[in-house]
Amino acid sequence: MRPAPLRWLRRTLLAAVPVVIGVVLAAFFLLRLVPGDPARMILGENATDESVAQLRQELGLDKPLEAQFGDFVVSVVTRGDTGDSLFYGVSSRELILKRAPISLSIVAMAVLISIVVAALLATVAAANRDRLPDHLIRIIPTIGLGMPTFWIGLLLITVFAVHLRWLPAGGVGTGPYEPWRSYVLPALAVSIGLVPPLVRSLRAELLEVFSADFVTTYRAAHVPWPRILFGHILRNAALPTVTLLSVSLSFLIGGTLVVEKVFGINGLGMLLFNAIGNRDFPLVQGIALYCALAVVIISLVLDVIIGLLDPRTRTA
């Protein structure tokens, strides 16, 4: 039985609450895995005991664990912050929010590229079921699964930036369009890992729809193929694609952060790597927290959209 829309919506939203709590807990305990004293780890072995004690006080590490957790939660809930960055001396939230649009733009572009490429490949594969193009399209992308994203990035730079000079090799250009040109290659590198599962799911969906009654009817009525394909079939296949994207979001964000390093793009990934180099405890926590919250919120939104589009999926 399908729950009523409003009750379903409320239940979906409530189901996200424990995950959000879990994410905050995890972000707090993540760096308390450190064997020994985090303050000592930050300052290094040559630091004096006084400076370590001072940093412990600054970070609140001298308080009991419950009190530390309390402070952390208060800071996260009221200010959306995990504390001031030790290295830059400003709020971690500010640093993160400044860089986040860059990373999110790459993620968005990667989603776009994956969908277009996967839709094309899946259509060709499904239309040539069990013939050579189908086999090739199913086999070749699995090679992509074992390809490290950064390595793909290196290849893309060599070919498209250094040799062909079609697109920027790295960094982010200025102006209204230039940044988007800079995001193409990194987004492409990230999307290569996403295309194989998308093709697989889309192909299966398309094969199912191809044999569906309404297609047979349309064909009998001599409705042109492209119209059937774009007007009806792809529309039907869109839903599982969105579902798969929602599941892959975490993979996409993670891949983007890594690929920023290869392309020298100053997004969240670069901020994370530098924070690690700087042993910037609160900033690392902040980035982890924001990334996880982004995943939770975006997948929640996608779930709601899917649920509204297709009531059949409202089973939660």
Partner: peptide, 17 residues
């Protein structure tokens, strides 16, 4: 222009950035 490493420096020069 701030560029993250020397590999990127050369690549951005070669790509005309």
């Amino acid at each position: 222009k701030l560029i993250s490493d020397d590999t990127q420096l050369l690549q951005q020069l070669q790509s005309g950035q």
